[in-house]
Structure formats: structure tokens, C-alpha cells
Amino acid sequence: MRQIVCSSEALVPGQKMAVQVGKRSVVLVRMGNGDYSALMDTCPHQGAKLSDGELTGTTLPSGVGEYVYGKEAAVLRCPWHRWEFDVTSGQALFEDRRACVKHFEVTIEDGNVVIHY
């Protein structure tokens, strides 16, 4: 199944929006590099709406006392307890395979953003 959700210019890099895809609530994000990605709009922890969170970068694993910032606009941070999810995979940034949000394939077709589900 596929659904056109908006024009490919609807979001600028760093923006996100909640969309309805079939019966599912999905959060569509446009990453820092311009690519689109989409995740289920429900946090697997306690159920907050991820679209109320922050699309952000974050600190990457680093040496002690060192801060290396990366993944610009490629991390979705939950509005409640701030679990961080990689928007390209839906996987949380900490090690726990259960902390994973469903990820949807997104394509651009004829100037439109299409979510496959």
C-alpha cells in the first residue's frame, strides 16, 4: 500500500509533521540532508506522540569529557522522556532492541512524498 501525503516541498530540512496514512498516525520528517523519512507517531515507551517532539541532532559517542555533535536533524527526540530515535531506522540510540519505532519507506514521485505501508 502507498499513499501520497504532501508535495516534496511541503517541509524544509529540519521540519516534521504528523500525517495520517491509512489508519496509522505517522510522523513525516525531512532530515538535514533533505531526505524524507517516516516513523509511526507513537513512542514505544509510554505512548507520547513523537510529532510533538524535537527533530534534532545529538551528541555522538565520544571520548570522556568530549562532545561531538552530529546526526543533524536525523534524530527524533520524544516530547516526554526524550528517548532518541534514528529517523532512518526507527531504532533508539541506546542499546535496547525493543526500543524501536516502526519505520516506513518514503519515496518522492512526481514531486510528491509517498509513504509505503
Partner: peptide, 10 residues
Amino acid sequence: HWDFDSPLRS
């Protein structure tokens, strides 16, 4: 607060 516990899920 940021560490709010939901009555439905916590």
C-alpha cells in the same frame, strides 16, 4: 515534567 509517568503505560 519531562519524566512524566503516564497513568496508562507506566
